[in-house]
């Protein structure tokens, strides 16, 4: 652990590079990156909870959906300003995170995952059935107020949000809290035996994950300008988030970011070749091969590759 100046320098380089990006790439590419930014936020949220503590969430779209729907409804139906609807949406998502947490007190492993999946499915049904005059039912809501217009502005907005989330989560996970959450994922009993209150720690993890998911969901809906249950509470969306976190490298912050960009661009570049859902087979295959080769993900592959280059250089130099 510990924060070194090299880490901070890497963050600075990354942020400067991204801020300069609109000068060099097309608007279409920027739009792809916007989606990647949001996916990175969702994947980081998933990873803080599931990548660390081992409580696998299959219900992340539930948390994201609460954030998105709350903000959309408040601003579109009730005329709340976005500056108010987004914080309220985040609070609502955190309340959702608490609901999520209740089964986690009693069950673990695949059962927990299934319960969270049920949350997502429940939300999908409820949104359509209960008060469709407010939620927009099956068709959802369109014409939601957007924060800003144009690819460049939205790129900056989504990138700043993503960078802020990533950096603050990185700091948080470097703290004792992050260490304890990872420890829970490896051996929860032992964490308790060391005198830590795992209930509080898990609640913290669920709250943080819900905060990030709700924040991302709310900003996302004000970027898209519309929301529909089918697109949000969707198994493909769920798996894209999970695969992004895992393929990049779980239990890190940079991993989910790499994974989100990798997946987004992969899906985008496959679009002309495979226009339908077959694209998901391709990334499923890539994910499978990667896990068999290196379960720690792309970040680990890159790290080892870099290590080998360094070693080769050192060997050549001597």
């Amino acid at each position: 652990m510990g924060i070194r100046w090299q880490h901070l320098a890497a963050w600075a380089v990354f942020i400067i590079f991204m801020l300069a990006l609109p000068e060099f790439v097309s608007k279409g590419t920027l739009r792809t990156i916007i989606f990647a930014n949001f996916l990175a936020i969702f994947a980081i949220s998933w990873d803080v909870l599931s990548g660390r503590t081992g409580y696998i969430s299959f219900g992340h779209p539930f948390l994201i959906g609460i954030g998105a729907y709350t903000s959309a409804i408040l601003s579109y139906r009730f005329g709340f300003p976005i500056a108010l609807s987004i914080p309220l949406a985040v609070v609502a998502a955190m309340i959702g995170g608490t609901l999520f947490f209740l089964p986690a007190l009693r069950i673990r492993g695949s059962y927990f995952a299934l319960v969270t999946l049920a949350f997502m499915e429940l939300m999908y049904q409820l949104v359509q059935v209960i008060r469709p005059d407010i939620t927009g039912g099956t068709r959802g809501i369109s014409g939601v107020e957007t924060i800003t217009r144009g690819a460049v502005n939205n790129f900056y907005l989504s990138f700043c949000l993503m960078a802020l989330v990533a950096f603050s989560m990185w700091l948080l996970m470097k703290s004792r809290l992050g260490t304890a959450l990872s420890a829970i994922g490896m051996n929860e009993e032992s964490v308790r035996g060391s005198g830590l209150d795992t209930t509080k720690l898990k609640l913290a993890a669920f709250m943080i994950a819900a905060f990030v998911a709700g924040l991302g969901g709310a900003f996302y809906v004000h970027y898209l300008g519309s929301i529909a249950p089918r697109a949000l509470f969707d198994i493909n969306f769920l798996f894209t988030i999970i695969v992004a976190a895992l393929i990049g490298g779980a239990s890190t912050i940079i991993g989910p970011m790499i994974g989100a960009f990798f997946l987004t661009f992969l899906l985008e570049y496959l679009r002309p070749v495979l226009p339908g859902a077959e694209r998901y087979f391709i990334y499923g295959g890539i994910a499978l091969i990667l896990y068999m080769y290196q379960p720690k993900g792309i970040y680990e592959v890159a790290k080892q590759g870099w290590g080998r280059i360094q070693a080769a250089r050192a060997g050549a130099g001597s």
Binding site: M1, T179, S182, A183, M186, N187, E189, S190, G193, S251
Partner: peptide, 11 residues
Amino acid sequence: NLFPYMSVLDN
């Protein structure tokens, strides 16, 4: 019952 993928210090 250690935390296998953490350093000695983190353990």
